[in-house]
Structures are given as structure tokens and as C-alpha cells.
Design a protein around this nucleic acid. Structure first.
Lengths: 196, 196
DNA sequence: GGCTGTATATAACACTGTTATATTTTGTCA
DNA sequence: TGACAAAATATAACAGTGTTATATACAGCC
């Protein structure tokens, strides 16, 4: 890729990100992106693979942020502390990058399907979570057990994050959603500990 | 509403439901609905409020199915058994009416926002869940406590349902997703019981 | 039978994603 | 340095979308 090609890609991605962070997927038309990037729509197709390529790039970005949330210094924290810290980072990401978060959980164009590369990013984020959480389990825990544990924590966190975006959260006088989320996840950790 | 008006509404809704159950929101264009109903698109606007009205109707249907899942005969089951049965029904609904389920959790047109009536249906479903689950708590449990408990169970179930639709579920060799989901929710019930 | 109101059909609008065609720019070679 | 080819980019057009303006058909009432 030449330097000018790289420059054009960067301009397009910058324009797409700005529109996306401000207005979510609804703000992401190829005409709006091209206009903001100061070029014509054909560039979205020659530098990315059209709308699909833009969404894939943002989807991967979303999962990269989720993966980064799991990067905890294990030398400075106990396994349990590391997991709790990772979960706090996850909730931070879900809030600060809500547009990305909604995209990775399917709240985008109904015709969008993540590409193999994009799906791989999701798998990598999950593997990262398995690594973080399995340090808490017994050394001889099976691969399946580790994956189930990681899944349980992720499901718990995501469930609360998503319901927070629902009408239900207005009805419920819960002023500390974040604490409730972490407590529910910690109950799963405690249950795993009690189990051996 | 006259009888012929009612007939036209029914034809439109039947056509929309058939397309929706088969192809989800992506299959729901006003032209496709009108064609399948054997009429022109203007009827979508005069009998419903256009695309918004169609999505609102299906959204409400989705939450009505979720509410129906919580209808458990409390005279034939202990509180705990009733909750577990309600959760099983919920997972059934999520699977059998996946298109409705995705719609109520935002996986639709990015420009769609549920109307006040539609949001009310979500609130009613949640109230139904609070009623079901609060029978398990101590009689003097606060309103907030009851809502938190109901939310915890719902978040746990939804988290697993949503992650099952992700690439992660292909990576993870989990042949019994449903059991894992129920066990995670039961841990939350057990923790509530242990707490008093 | 005529008139009014309602229901429905048709045509048109503006926006969308995408591509065919045209134009401009860049790089290479003699 | 000019010519040529390739690449990059711009423009125009296509088909589909949601929505509405206008036209037509139908129903009800006097």
C-alpha cells in the first residue's frame, strides 16, 4: 500500500469513526462518510469493501477495545482482583464506546454480517477473557470448564449492559447499575470458588 | 374500526409476520409487505403508522410472548420451581421467536425507536417477571430488592441467549447451552436464598 | 342519481448502497 | 521531457428503500 493510499484510507476511517461515535450506525451512510472525508463514494469501495468493509473495521475496533479491557497485569493482582478489574474495564468500554458496543452485539444494519476476520476478532476477545478468568480456577480445570466460566461472566456483564439500554432501566430505581452488575458477576465467581 | 378496515389490518399484519418470521427485519420492506398482502404501500401508512407502526406491533408481540412465558400457575409450583419453569419458557421463546427476540433487543433497523406503547410492553413484561420472582424473596423485601433480583435473572438469561448468537458459541464446545444458562441463573437464586 | 367522504392505487420524491463510465493523476519508460 | 499505461478518483446512473402527493375507485347518505 503506497503512502497516498494509506492517507486516503486514514481519512475515510477518521470520517467514519467521527460520524459513528456521534450518531451510531444510523449516521453511517457511504455518502455521509465520503462527504466528511472530502472525497467521492467510490473510495469507500476501492479502499474498503464498501459499507461492509467500514462496518467490519469498526466491529474489529470494538472487539479490540474489549480485548484491551482484559489486559491486566497479573503480577500486581491476585486472580480474583484481576478479574474484577477486567470487568470494571469492560463496563467502562461498554459505556464510553457505546456505538462500537452495540455494533458488536448486532445492533447495526440488519443486513450486516461480520466477515470471517471480524468474527475472528470476537473469538480473540473471548480467548483473552478465558486467559484472564482461568487463572482463578484450579490448575487442572478442563478447557470446557474454563470456557464455561469465562462465558458465564461475559453473559452476566452483557446482560446487565444491554438491559440498561432498555426501557426497563427507566422504570427501575437503580442508581447503581454498575455495582449491581459487578455484584452479580462476583456471585458467579464466589460460586465457582465454592465449587472447588 | 369497520369490519373491512379490520380485515385490511389483519392482512397486512399477517403478511408482515410471515416475512418477519422467515427473514427477520431485513425482509421487512413496506413494498414486500404490501406485495405479500396483495395491496399497495399506502395501506401500511393508513392502517399502521408506516414502517414504525409495523415494527412497534411486532415489538409488542415479542414482549407479549415474553410476558406469557412468565405465566406460571403458582398454586401448582413452589416459588423456586415457578421461577425455573418461567426461565425455561423464556429460553423457549427466545429460540422459537428469534426474530421477535432480536427486535426487542434492538437488533433491527438502526433508525427504529420503540414508541411509548411499545416501551410500555417491555415494562409490563418486566413487571410480570418481578411478580414471578418476588414470591421467592422474603415477604418484607423492598420494591428495589425485588426489582434487582428480577433484573439479575433477566440479565443472566439474556446474556447467554445473546452470546449464543455470537461467533463465540461456535468456538466453545458447549453442547448444553441451555443447561449452562439455567445453572448460572440458579446460582443467582441460590445466592439470594443464602442471603436471607 | 348525485355528492361527499373514505379507501386504495399510482406516481413521484429524496435517500440509500453499489457500480458503470468518464476523467484526472501518477508512475514508468524511452 | 513527453508519451503511454495503470491507478485513483469523480460523476452519473441504477435499483431498492421509506414516505407522501395526487389520482382513482368505492361506499354511504340524501
Amino acid at each position: 500500500m503506497t503512502d497516498t493510499q494509506h492517507k486516503t484510507k486514514t481519512r475515510i476511517l477518521k470520517a467514519a469513526s467521527e460520524l459513528f461515535l456521534k450518531g451510531g450506525v444510523a449516521a453511517l451512510s457511504v455518502r455521509a462518510i465520503a462527504k466528511r472525508a472530502g472525497m467521492s463514494t467510490i473510495n469507500i469501495y476501492s479502499h474498503f469493501q464498501g459499507k461492509q468493509g467500514i462496518l467490519d473495521t469498526l466491529y474489529i475496533e470494538g472487539f479490540e477495545k474489549v480485548s484491551a479491557a482484559m489486559d491486566i497485569d497479573m503480577t500486581r493482582h491476585s486472580p480474583r482482583e484481576a478479574i474484577v478489574l477486567g470487568m470494571k474495564h469492560y463496563l467502562d468500554i461498554a459505556e464510553q464506546y457505546n456505538a462500537h458496543y452495540r455494533l458488536i452485539f448486532g445492533e447495526a444494519d440488519p443486513s450486516y454480517t461480520p466477515s470471517p476476520d471480524a468474527r475472528q476478532a470476537g473469538i480473540a476477545a473471548f480467548e483473552r477473557l478465558v486467559t484472564l478468568t482461568s487463572s482463578f480456577l484450579p490448575k487442572d480445570a478442563s478447557r470446557t470448564r474454563k470456557q464455561e466460566f469465562a462465558l458465564t461472566l461475559w453473559a452476566t456483564l452483557h446482560g446487565f449492559v444491554r438491559l440498561h439500554g432498555n426501557a426497563v432501566s427507566e422504570l427501575v430505581d437503580i442508581s447503581n447499575w454498575r455495582q449491581m452488575t459487578l455484584e452479580a458477576a462476583i456471585r458467579q465467581i464466589d460460586a465457582a470458588q465454592a465449587e472447588g
